[in-house]
Amino acid sequence: MTDTAVHRIGRWALARIVRLGHATAFLHVLLVRSWRLPSRPGPAAAKAARLVVHQLFSVGVLTLAIILVSGIFVGMVLGLQGYNTLVDFGSEASLGLLVALSLTRELGPVVTALLFAGRAGSALTAEIGLMKATEQLAGMEMMAVNPMTRVIAPRFVAGLISLPLLAAMFTVIGIYGGYVVGVIQLGVDAGVYWSQMQDRVDFYDDVVNGLIKGVVFGFVVSWIAVFEGYDSVPTSAGVASATTRTVVSASLAVLGLDFIMTALMMGGS
């Protein structure tokens, strides 16, 4: 049987599809377990909440630093580049609007998701993969504690909650970064910076859509990170390659979904 390039591509594509099915079956179990987290009686719900809070710390709070710093820089660059372009058309008064729209619609959710995938996503994959490799997950199972409920679901839920919040913070700090460069450094009128923005940034079309993107990205990045860790080959090499896969797959998924969502959201008007 000859093994041509077509054969290989076909095999590769089939393997991808099988893996996606695997990941979807995993997602089904994960969603059931996550859904049931808060609904257990009394002290069990408090225990579940504590797990999620713990994960919110390692996934959300610890990612805050890189998000805020990146946000400021991106905002400042937008201010600088935006000013340079608008000034040629005499429209530098619209700088505030430019910065705000760029951030709320696109850069806020997308850049945050990419940074999140790199920092928090890879950490999640590595952590879970390592637990699998050292048989901690198996040990938990044998102690009649479901690792999906105890380990995986809280991390997924934490990622889902964190990303939209981080994206909002990125956006706001970026807008202020643009303000610092545009108004303080380049002389755009402060009042105009804000008034143009407040006039034309639509709450539903821009802010809410950006928030929706944040939630969708949070869902997808957390799913990928957690799945790759859970499915990793239980060796150190296996964990390393799973971590890389998380960052690459999550980043590509974010960019692809961004295009689809933008097309759907903007297409209407």
Partner: peptide, 19 residues
């Protein structure tokens, strides 16, 4: 199965302690 597992214990070669 989980009920049964509460009554059995498996000691892994590596101990499998939570690090």
């Amino acid at each position: 199965l989980y009920e049964l597992r509460k009554r059995m214990a498996l000691l892994f070669q590596s101990g499998a302690l939570f690090t």
